[in-house]
Write a protein that binds this DNA or RNA. Structure first.
Length: 292
DNA sequence: ATGTTTGTTCCGAT
DNA sequence: CATCGGAACAAACA
């Protein structure tokens, strides 16, 4: 499930637990490959100190330092990636054969284990230049972007609004679940063209996105039916209990039967009554007149 | 057996 | 060139 709220939850917890810790040893599963190579990763990370932990889009970034140099362990959880923090060494399974793909042990006896059943995620060791490249791939963060950049970026792509929200180069961190909920909250039909949205709708949409992401963070993310996502302590998120429309059958506002469609290969829920496909201000050029 | 899933990237078609 | 849809990555589940 990891979208922005889940990644933020994990990143915040890691920052609290790991900052200042020395990595005493590292192991990578024999059947797993990390960038740039397992050898390089082990060589660099072993005996390094964790300086900070942060997030770029949906990527967790652990900053490690060693003799005046610095590297960035970037971790993408994709669909099924997990990070689990242990107070004591997880003894049982050997990282060479178990589910553990990458394991870092810290002085003091704690450890961090990365697992990923479907292996869509990754662990990479980046240098300064590679981190910049990574950062450049992503659009601004929805929690800090201003309305003008948000609308300008979205409008730069001629497609439907839901597809644009999922395009990480335009705005980063929003995934399918939160996109569904944000569009419902802003009463915008997922298929509306980016160019047809008014400045008022962009304003509502950005506010909705922020509110929903903040709620998601407060609830420590969403754990779906597969129980895949947990925080680093193994606790489930709670935000699935607060979904506005994702996975629902009836509109919480007008009680209409919700509709479901596949849009750009992603499951899409919408209320045919609250989210009209026709823009209420269709035909007007308010946005353009304000910009120029 | 087929279709579905929280993400991303790449390719060929348009 | 921009964009789209589908496939791919791989696994569990209904």
């Amino acid at each position: 499930m990891p979208e922005l709220p889940e990644v933020t939850t994990i990143s915040n917890q890691l920052k609290k637990e790991l900052t200042g810790k020395v990595i005493s040893s590292v192991s990578v599963n024999v059947g797993y490959k990390v960038h740039p190579s397992n050898e390089e990763f082990l060589k660099w990370v072993t005996r390094s100190t964790i300086e900070d932990v942060g997030r770029i889009a949906k990527v967790i970034v652990i900053i490690v330092g060693k003799s005046d140099a610095r590297r960035y362990i970037s971790i993408h959880l994709a669909m099924t990636g997990r990070l689990r923090f242990w107070r004591s060494l997880p003894n049982q399974e050997s990282p060479q054969t178990g589910d553990s793909l990458v394991e870092m042990r810290f002085e003091g006896g704690t450890s961090l284990v990365f697992t990923d059943v479907r292996r869509f995620g990754y662990v990479k060791l980046l240098n300064e230049g590679e981190l910049k490249v990574l950062k450049a791939k992503y659009g601004p963060d929805p929690l800090s972007v201003d309305l003008k950049s948000f609308s300008k970026n979205i409008r730069s792509r001629r497609t439907n609004i839901k597809n644009a929200l999922l395009d990480q180069s335009l705005i980063s961190g929003i995934g399918n679940i939160y996109a569904n909920d944000a569009l419902f909250m802003a009463k915008i039909h997922p298929k509306v063209s980016t160019g047809d949205l008014t400045i008022q709708q962009f304003n509502n949409l950005l506010s909705s996105i922020r509110q929903i992401l903040y709620e998601g963070i407060e609830h420590r993310g969403s754990t779906l039916g597969d129980l895949m996502y947990t925080d680093i302590y193994g606790f489930y998120g709670e935000h699935q209990n607060y979904f506005r429309i994702y996975g629902k059958s009836f509109c919480s506002i007008c009680k209409s039967k919700l509709e479901f469609m596949v849009l750009n290969s992603r499951g899409t829920y919408f209320c045919p009554v609250c989210q009209k496909e026709d823009s209420p201000d269709s035909g007007e050029s308010l946005y353009r007149s304000l910009l120029i």
